[in-house]
Design a protein around this nucleic acid. Structure first.
Lengths: 353, 353
DNA sequence: ATGAAAGCGCTAACAT
DNA sequence: ATGTTAGCGCTTTCAT
């Protein structure tokens, strides 16, 4: 084959500069080039080092990560699989992941499974084939059979937010029971104890389970009764207005709505506005997750804040420790980290009334 | 080396199943395995094919994409570099990119340069080293010296939204002049012709330039005068309230604000609220970009919508065509695609008054 | 219809 | 201090 003009443009096609080209230019062996790049092992004379550095610069050489990864069985790539990138909460998480990974020299491969199990499986397979060093995953709906195989193979995975039953894994969660309790306490304190709850379908998703369960628990603790018909579970595609309407047509009416999801909160607010119901005069609303817009909507939203950035940061740190531990053939003990939510008080529950 | 128990778990360490393992299990050559995987070339007897398929399944084999990519000089990976993932506009774009790429069998490597030139350069270098087949980039602030080298090497790149001067490239843009004209027409029609403009720093960013220039142009066309002190340029870290205050303290006051960025709009709205200025009674506001929250803020925002999803989709399609063209050693003619914005009328400009 | 072998670009023993 | 060489796991030419 035409082993020669490798480093020339072939009819306008991109040239690829390889380590060999650098070696030739610097008049050293490729090993030497490799060594100065990774400033590895044995001392190298300042002279040759400089020669190599010059050659690299002149040729604008960039090592082929595929070759390097193939050889080293390590890619410095971390796969991040998120269930729903549209939700700004996850972008905050992502920022935490990004920062922690950048510090440690890892790049990210981010995929969006859009709460679809099939997408998630395809994405994970892609990660595996691309030989990522580890995976951070916010599981989508449904139980993914691949999780089991990953975990039992001791592959570095950290789960985010949603617990995966039966698996002993690293998981970063936010204390949902506490979050809900914060919310209900606040409402009760404001004499808004006739509380309705809105949630997207539970579908076995742990935070959703915990928020609804936590709701019952918190209500009970306050000696309050839970009106089952005030627990509204609805699909993302469903018309929220119908449920809100239904809620307001009962014999008795709630004086507060606890929305367990930030996107859902927007839907509820719109329905309320359409129906001419005033917030917070007629009904209070308390949301989950702080967002860019929380304080700008009308009225400014009282909400449970989750430490999203921190969550991402911790997940990445944990994963990287996991990866290192595997590299050094040490044992790894999975752990669950529970972060604390907090309450941001604004005006949507009638605080200023 | 212990070439044997390759496919066994080494003290809990993940096993790697290779093509060789499959070949052995199916009692064929690795070539044959490769062939059935890629159902390539020569016919293979149904018998052997089935044997191989079985072996693959039993071993849960997944080909190593690094090795494959190294050999084929092709990764089926597309790098996406965005200037600001926090802005929901870009997530919509991303969705379009995702859909188009998935259809064509490409995976994405998404990075967030956070409007920082250094990050952007590092991210691009990472793309190159990882041998992505092409890059979609929304340039961050500043001129990136790498662009030149990419483009002149005929490397498949598509630019999004921001034009890169002097380079003959594929670029997908939205017609900013038209967008601004839509906005100003609307305002004038509502007798809100004393218009102030808010923008983030121009910094040579083409859509910002065009929106401000377009503003002047549109005003002139309506025979309106541009009050220079009403053109407010401010940094993301700056306190927006000061500028709003300043605006309201002049001898003459605007009756409308045209905000050229969706994040900025939230800031302005907050400042206005803090200052006790009513929207739209005292002043109207018209924003750029439609978002999830646009209709939920108070009052519902009248805004210029950009076809974000379409933008992403077109960019990806264009890039993939570029890649294919290179693979087939055909000539490629870069083009600029100009998409159309539209006006979404709600209540923030006093439409209902 | 199937297989042997070269080689993609790199790193890491193992020389010297 | 530097070089030689054997792979990493795959695809692809060339044999058979």
């Amino acid at each position: 084959m035409e082993r020669e003009n490798q480093s020339l443009k072939l009819n306008g096609k991109k040239m690829r500069v390889t380590i060999e080209d650098v070696a030739k230019k610097a008049d050293v062996s490729i090993t030497t080039v490799s060594r100065v790049m990774n400033n590895n092992y044995h001392h190298i004379s300042p002279d040759t080092k400089q020669k190599v550095l010059n050659a690299i610069q002149e040729l604008d050489y960039r090592p082929n990560a595929l070759a390097k990864g193939l050889k080293q069985m390590k890619t410095n790539l971390i796969g991040v699989s998120l269930s729903n990138l549209q939700n700004p909460f996850w972008l905050k998480v992502l920022e935490g992941i990004e920062d922690a990974c950048q510090d440690a020299g890892y790049s990210l491969m981010i995929v969006n499974s859009r709460d679809n199990l099939n997408n998630e499986m395809e994405n994970l397979k892609g990660f595996i084939m691309r030989q990522v060093d580890g995976i951070i995953i916010n599981p989508s709906i449904g139980s993914n059979p691949l999780f089991n195989s990953l975990v039992s193979n001791n592959f570095p995975v950290v789960f985010l937010n949603r617990k995966v039953s039966d698996l002993k894994t690293d998981t970063i969660e936010v204390d949902n029971l506490k979050g809900v309790s914060l919310a209900i306490n606040h409402l009760v304190k404001l004499n808004r104890s006739k509380i309705a709850l809105f949630s997207y379908p539970i579908d076995g998703i742990s935070p959703r389970i915990e928020r609804v369960e936590g709701f019952r628990k918190a209500m009970t603790q306050h000696g309050l009764e839970v009106n089952e018909s005030w627990i509204k579970i609805l699909d993302e595609k469903e018309d929220c207005k119908i449920h809100v309407q239904d809620l307001l047509q009962g014999t008795e009416q709630p004086n507060a709505i606890f929305s367990t999801n930030n996107m859902l909160t927007l839907e509820i607010l719109e329905a309320l506005k359409d129906l001419g119901v005033r917030v917070p005069e007629d009904i209070g609303i308390l949301g989950y997750d702080e967002t860019k817009w929380s304080k700008h909507i009308n009225p400014a939203l009282t909400t449970i804040e989750q430490p999203a950035y921190e969550m991402g940061k911790q997940a990445a740190k944990r994963l990287i420790a996991f990866i290192r531990s595997n590299e050094e053939k040490r044992e790894w003990q999975p752990e669950t980290l529970l972060l604390n939510p907090s309450l941001i008080i604004r005006n949507s529950c009638g605080e200023a009334l």
